[in-house]
Each structure stands twice: as C-alpha cells, then as structure tokens.
C-alpha cells in the first residue's frame, strides 16, 4: 500500500513509525524536567534505549528557526504504558520539550538503539556511574535490578542533585557535587575510585563480577572510560552524539572506535562496551 503507516510487524510496537502521543505531566526536578508521555501501545524499552522526541506544535518556532530535528533522549523509566524522560534545557529543542504542558502532543520514535547488556546480566555486580542528566538511562537500569545496583551519581550542585531522588530501590546511593553542597565534593568518577575496592570484594564474595554502567557529560565519561581501562574494569557507556534520524539512516552520529573505524551511536550504541571506544570527544569544549 502506498498509504497509511503500518501497524504491525515492527520492534517498536504498534505503529512502526513516529507515534503521536500525549504529554501527561512535565514536572520540575531541580533544574531539570521529568516529562511523562502516554505511550500505551509502544514496545517496552530496555534500559539504555532512547527515543527521538519532538513537540508537534511549536517545533521550529525559535528565533533562529530551530529546533528542526527531533531530539534523542534516553528513557529514564517506562512504567504502566508511560514513558519518562529526564530533560535539561541546553538548546532550542530541549527548551521546547521542557516547556511542554500536559495535554500537548509529541512525535516519538522509539525505543531505539542498543541497550545495556553486560550490566543487565544476572551475574553482574552493577555500579551505576552517572553525571547530571546522564543518570537518566541508569534510572531505567536500576528499575530492572531492584535492590541490586549501587548508584554513584555526580551533579553540579544541590539543586541538580534533587534528580537523584528519582532513583528507586538502589542497593546504595552515593552523591557527589562539584561544589560539595551535597555529598562528596567531586565527580561520580571520584565516587567510583573510592568505592571500587569494596565493590570488588563484595562482588567476589558473591561470585559476581563488577560491571560499571556509565553515562554523563563527555569529560566525565572520558575520565570514566580511562579509569575502567586502567583498572581492567568491565564497563558499558551510554554515549551522546549529534544525531539526526536515530535509526541508522543518515550515518551522521558516528564516533570513532578504538580500532579506528566509525560506529553509529544510534544503532550500534548508544550503549557501547567501554573497551571498544576511543577517547570520547567533547565538541562543546
């Protein structure tokens, strides 16, 4: 048929293409927003997967004709047919998403991408190492491992650290802030440095292996990648890249792997085994 959008046969659940969904809530969470979208017929995402999200109205209405493309956001949670996203306003797209009101509609394509795998394994002793908004996919992973994952979250300040309250049923939760206003002063990687010996001991006594699941701003993620490499620590990192389509069509979101080839963050990631990755670039630096 040259006509309507297909309704079956896709991994994305009912409606293989972009779905038009209704915003149920959009609440402040420190400086971030927790956006909740009604998605009763979408496939259940696995932790680490993401969706391409745009507002159906007022998208492209910014002063410079942006946003144009949808924005890639990791699922922070998927529960009772609702998709939750943790959003920080960093540009025109996230600004519009942060301003969505209940009842407004969004276009959503997802779940997309490669989820956490090693960290989702039953034999893993999981350390969630997240920085700022990067805790989002780790929240979803924590939901999958109730009472089993140890969360090590770093934030800019006390206000941002409020997002840690979204983490439900971690085995333990430690917080660091850049300004020391909550928890330890420093980054999530420093929490890991301090915690590692104990975690390895606990894992060993339970016959398990420590697996780090990480996500955060590029400098933090790069520090985490290097630390895990130096300590021979299994890790999976959720990376970010400028993205256009989210489904592998455009080859725009590549990052360089350690062996020199390029991999698309959208379909070969966004979660990569840490040892496959080369230095994580910080384009904003």
């Amino acid at each position: 048929m040259a006509g309507s959008v297909p309704s079956t046969g896709s991994r994305l659940g009912q409606g293989a293409g972009r779905r038009e969904l209704v915003v149920l809530a959009n609440q402040p969470c420190g400086p971030y927003r927790l956006l909740q979208v009604d998605d009763p017929h979408g496939a259940t995402p696995q932790p680490g997967q993401f969706a391409m999200l745009s507002a159906l109205e007022g998208w492209g209405a910014g002063a410079d004709g942006r946003p144009y493309l949808p924005r890639a956001l990791s699922y922070a949670r998927h529960r009772d047919g609702q998709a939750h996203f943790l959003i920080a306003e960093v540009g025109p797209g996230t600004k519009r998403l942060c301003a969505l009101a209940p009842g407004e509609r969004v276009g959503m394509l997802g779940p997309l991408g490669r989820p956490f795998q090693r960290a989702a394994d039953a034999q893993a002793h999981v350390l969630l190492v997240g920085g700022g908004i990067g805790i989002a996919p780790l929240l979803a992973l924590c939901d999958l491992l109730p009472g089993r994952a140890h969360a090590l979250f770093g934030f800019r300040d006390a206000s941002c650290a409020q997002a840690a309250e979204l983490c439900e049923r971690p085995a333990a939760l430690q917080i660091a802030t850049d300004d020391g206003s909550v928890g330890r002063r420093g980054s999530a990687v420093e929490l890991l440095v301090a915690e590692l010996a104990r975690a390895r001991q606990a894992a060993a006594s339970a016959g398990r292996q420590v697996v780090v699941a990480g996500c955060g701003p590029p400098p933090m993620l790069e520090a985490l990648r290097r630390f895990c490499r130096e300590r021979d620590l299994a890790c999976e990192l959720s990376v970010e890249a400028p993205m256009a389509c989210g489904y592998g069509a455009c080859h725009g979101c590549v990052l360089e792997l350690r062996e020199g080839s390029y991999a698309r963050a959208c379909i070969e990631g966004p979660v990569f085994a840490g040892e496959r990755l080369g230095p994580i670039p910080d384009y904003e630096a």
Partner: peptide
C-alpha cells in the same frame, strides 16, 4: 569509504548541515 571524521551534523535554521562523506 569510511566517511568523514565526526562531528558530521549541525542543525541550522530549518535545515541540516552534514559532512557524512559518502561512507
């Protein structure tokens, strides 16, 4: 062809700049 080094995309006003490089 492996294509161009990243970043390969830039969102412009109502448009998209790319330097994919024909991988």
């Amino acid at each position: 062809r492996q294509g161009n080094p990243p970043p390969r995309l830039w969102e412009s006003s109502a448009g998209l700049l790319n330097s994919i490089g024909l991988p």
